[in-house]
Design a protein around this nucleic acid. Structure first.
Length: 409
RNA sequence: GGAGGGAUACCCAAGUGGCCAAAGGGGGCAGACUGUAAAUCUGUUGUCUCAGACUUCGAUGGUUCGAAUCCAUCUCCCUCCA
């Protein structure tokens, strides 16, 4: 059993902000006394079911709550998903079908339990209660907040100032998310710092509905592999926890050096003291940042694929990128039975078939740029007289495929 | 309801009759280099049977030898007024 102080220390670790700590302490105390675990809420958007490292920052924090004996309620925002959290650039989203939502939720679950404790997790869909509200209920909800306060939200504020459109329905999004907290009587809601407005809305609504307000716990938002934008699926700068070990390892290696420490702190289990000392070493230039990044890549890969796979991914990285070799595992492609003509093999066409290029024009460009190799030999023409069984085609540094001859040849 | 402005490639954005497959920036991809798939520099970035041809500038139709550019209709967006 952890003392209240210890619990608070664990919970606050890595958190950007907690609103407010005194209330948290009170809730923890009450929980310990009554034996009733706290209900920790997390909302997830049903449209992007691939869990990436950005999500894990928050999920890992929830796991810590669970390890302290509390329970998590994960809310899949299937109803709110119809609107989409206003981000300014969001167009009105296409409504997902019931089947798509189900499918996405299933994928979420499958990935989520790599981090969360299944026995202490409850999964809910907010359409369950939101779809039952009638117009009078909605008016009741909207009357609890004012336009002026809505416009305090940074996104709305900016758009309002810039004379950009704000749909009335977008105002409902924070209200709905806040209402979710009322529905499950949440004690704590977690989210990235960009969730500030929505989560605070939950506090306000709970109070209006006669509940004790939830504690808001904000985790930092991590940048994606481009090092600038927040990690997100739509920006394509994410590292998904479902990706294979080689990819995870490699993608981590491609983050800018300045993110190394942040990643260590937020998405690995490496002890904070060790991270502190790494930070010092890094600042003093005593170490090649690459070596720390390799450790980082290893740690992250290990979390989702285990030791063995992580070792393999690392070996692969060293041989492919540091020694410019070829990877052990690669896609295999069986050639079609060759046409009788003696004109040889159109490499541009082959590259497209391999999925390395979107069009033959692009493939030709790659060849012109000297990016295509066969068995390590740079390719200098658009066609090749023939290929042998086991030949390795490489396009750029990342794409490899082994060629197999047609059956029976 | 009235008046005005706008829609260009993945994104932002220039282009007001031929020299436009369309400037510039971002992003992407590639090459070089490197201590890394960091950083930096360079190239490239519609498609094809790559010599040439074909499709592309909100949609449709029209004027013209020739249209992203002019005209008509339509769709969507924004601003101001009510």
């Amino acid at each position: 059993m952890f003392s209240i102080d210890e619990q608070i220390r664990i919970i606050s670790k890595g958190a950007e902000e907690i609103i407010d700590t005194a209330e948290l302490e009170e809730k923890l105390r009450a929980s310990q006394k009554t034996g009733r675990p706290l209900t920790v809420k997390l909302g997830l958007d049903p449209t992007a079911p691939d869990i990436h490292l950005g999500h894990t920052v928050v999920l890992r924090k929830i796991r810590q709550f669970q390890d302290l004996g509390h329970r998590a309620v994960i809310i899949i925002g299937d109803f709110t998903g119809m609107i989409g959290d206003p981000t300014g650039r969001s167009k009105t989203r296409r409504q997902l079908t019931r089947d798509e939502v189900k499918e996405n939720a299933r994928t979420y679950e499958e990935q989520m339990y790599k981090i969360l404790d299944r026995d202490k997790t409850e999964l809910r869909f907010n359409s369950e209660w939101l779809s039952k509200l009638n117009f009078a209920d909605v008016i009741g909800l909207t009357s609890k907040y004012t336009v002026a306060r809505m416009l305090e939200r940074e996104d709305f504020h900016t758009r309002f100032e810039a004379n950009e459109p704000i749909g009335i329905h977008e105002f409902l999004y924070p209200l709905m998310q806040g209402y979710d907290s009322v529905e499950i009587n949440a004690d704590v809601e977690l989210g990235g710092t960009e969730q500030r407005f929505n989560i605070l809305m939950g506090r306000k609504l709970q109070k209006d509905f006669g509940q004790q307000s939830q504690v808001a716990l904000f985790m930092p938002v991590i940048e994606g592999i481009d090092g600038v934008e927040k990690m997100s699926k739509s920006l394509g700068n994410y590292i998904g926890i479902n990706e294979d070990a080689q990819n995870i390892y490699g993608k981590v290696m491609s983050i800018p050096d300045h993110l190394i420490i942040k990643y260590f702190r937020l998405v690995t289990d490496v002890h904070p003291d060790e991270v502190d000392s790494m930070e010092k070493v890094l600042d003093s230039n005593e170490v090649n940042p690459r070596d720390l990044k390799m450790k980082l890549a290893f740690e992250i890969t290990k979390l989702y694929h285990g030791d063995k796979e992580a070792v393999r991914a690392e070996e692969n990285f060293i041989s492919v990128f540091q020694r410019k070799g070829i990877p052990e595992d690669m896609a295999e492609y069986r050639l079609d039975a060759e046409p009788a003509s003696g004109s040889g093999i159109d490499m541009a066409e082959l590259l497209v078939k391999l999925g390395f290029c979107a069009s033959k024009s692009e493939a030709r460009r790659l060849i012109e740029q000297g990016a295509v190799r066969i068995n390590g030999e740079k390719l200098s023409s658009f066609s090749v007289p023939g290929l042998n069984n086991g030949d390795v085609i490489q396009a750029g540094k990342l794409k490899f495929a082994r060629i197999l001859l047609p059956e029976g040849m």
